[in-house]
Write a protein that binds this DNA or RNA. Structure first.
Lengths: 222, 222
DNA sequence: TGAAATAGTGTACGTTCGACACTATCCTTC
DNA sequence: GAAGGATAGTGTCGAACGTACACTATTTCA
């Protein structure tokens, strides 16, 4: 492992697949590219890793720059490094994914005169670079984690109903779940607490509000 | 995502945590460093990513250079990029892990005059760089995958006994398993076939030999 | 006050998981 | 050639868990 003159010095970037649940759909954050390559196309937020910056910090910075939110769940996903993934030259991207509660959403749109927005996962157009693949891998990982962790709770605001939580599962897994079984299961996790409040939301019975017992923590279960 | 002058151009390397089962222990492959930094210490095999080389190919090359084996299971693990992880300067390492059947073991020792060897996972000394951490993460990932995939079969030679397979699980999970329940479970996977042969191996009843139905494939189960 | 809409609740069955002990076969030794 | 030592191989039962399934409760609005 000596310095090899034939080895390249690739550009190293991070990209973040930012998920949220909005308008009853699983959506992700995209920014429009203002310069070539792929000028005008939508892409995942991201950027170059600074000289003295940890990879996690770089991803977090990309996330905060585009969403304005901090302290959300962020996890390294996979590293993409096909030699031709960037037409400008060799580039490695360490991909992350993040889960943002729908309440925290305050896009820093136009502040840096960049077009930015939320897009439904199931209506995605072709993205810049290999970003479609990143999105695909992130979605797979997220769906898998639902089965053996409490990661879905990272989507929830401080107070939420069980129906809302069920919708999170259904939108990620892309299938309907049984209401009674679902409630049994999530309550058995022992990670959400009933509050004394209810939410009145339309001409029907109000729903009890719950809160996450350990916000910020994701537990591995079973 | 324009080229940022303040961004660094880190060296990009791959490292591979090569697992095998040998002498009844879970072991991994280490090479002794011949130059600074960490000269004389043991480290994971690895090397710089070549200018036109895919990350997977780079890891595979590091693996083949050190073990001489090809066509083994190799999976990207995690990317390590702490700014100070290499005292020579900024460096990113994309870590992989590989599983090698004990039969294929033919170390290319001394051919490039490099010290190389197998070390028991539970008696590891401090390694160069952040390689202890890589080993730890790889072991965790491997243990987790036992529960929901057929990855353990990648350790097995063409013909093997169920007791040998059980030992693989026990050494990775670090716990004894019940023989009857284990056999029920792995046979229910429907991924290994009984052969007509037995292996005589000491002064006791010979063990039936089995073979992997789809070698090279790792199935996700349940 | 009735209709529409979502919230909330329990049971029964099938499957899976885990604990548990004895017989079979081969080799070695006396 | 009999006995002892060593590993291979085999089945049952109870508990826990997952899954299918339908009706009542509460609110708003017409």
């Amino acid at each position: 492992m000596t310095r090899n003159p034939r080895s390249s010095r690739p550009a190293v970037t991070t990209n973040v697949v930012v998920f949220t649940l909005r308008d009853d759909k699983l959506k992700l954050l995209l920014v429009r590219r203002r310069s070539d390559p792929y000028k005008g196309m939508w892409a995942l937020p991201g950027g170059y890793v600074e000289a003295d910056e940890d990879l996690d910090d770089s991803a977090m910075r990309a996330l905060e720059d585009s969403t304005g939110v901090a302290g959300v769940y962020l996890e390294q996903l996979y590293t993409f490094g096909a030699p031709d993934r960037d037409p400008r030259g060799r580039s490695i991207s360490v991909a992350y994914y993040a889960l943002v509660p729908s309440e925290k959403l305050q896009l820093r749109t136009a502040s840096d005169s960049e077009a930015i927005g939320w897009f439904a996962l199931d209506e995605l157009e072709p993205l810049a670079f290999d970003h479609n693949e990143m999105v695909h891998v992130a979605h797979q990982r997220l769906a898998a984690k639902l089965a053996y962790s409490t990661i879905a709770l990272q989507f929830m605001p401080q107070k939420f109903t069980l129906s809302e939580l069920q919708k999170v599962y259904e939108r990620i897994l892309n299938e309907k779940l049984d209401k009674r079984n679902f409630r049994k299961r999530v309550l058995a996790l022992d990670q959400i607490d009933q509050t004394q409040e209810v939410r009145r939301n339309g001409s029907h019975r109000p729903a009890r509000l719950y809160s996450v017992r350990n916000p910020g923590e994701v537990q591995i279960i079973r």
